[in-house]
């Protein structure tokens, strides 16, 4: 009772539905009902997902620059080798 015979010619050819020769689709099968439990998300799962808000924390944009700066003189860059700060 398969309808329409999806003709797949290779991967990329789009499916052509053949309405002209299509057989009757059995509505009983098409609309075969599902168990209520299989259909919907359970209340417990729902409650669980309500705890999630899917938000990112505030971003302070920490970067390498910050690790290379002096605390008191932010314009100066740490130079570890000659240990003398240079204006940056």
């Amino acid at each position: 009772d398969e309808e329409a015979a999806p003709k797949k010619k290779g991967g990329k050819t789009p499916l052509v539905i053949n309405f002209l020769e299509a057989e009757e689709v059995d509505e009983k099968e098409l609309f075969a009902p599902a168990d209520a439990s299989a259909l919907s998300i359970s209340n417990t799962n729902l409650a669980e997902s309500r705890k999630q808000s899917h938000l990112l924390p505030d971003d302070i944009h920490f970067s390498s620059k910050q690790l290379l700066r002096m605390f008191l003189k932010p314009a100066f860059i740490i130079k570890s080798k000659n240990k003398k700060p240079q204006p940056g």
Partner: peptide, 20 residues
């Protein structure tokens, strides 16, 4: 409806079905 059912019954996500 008979024709529509044909589309509804397609098993995969298909652009042609979406078009109908």
């Amino acid at each position: 409806i008979r024709n529509l059912n044909v589309v509804l019954a397609i098993k995969k996500v298909e652009p042609t079905a979406d078009r109908v």
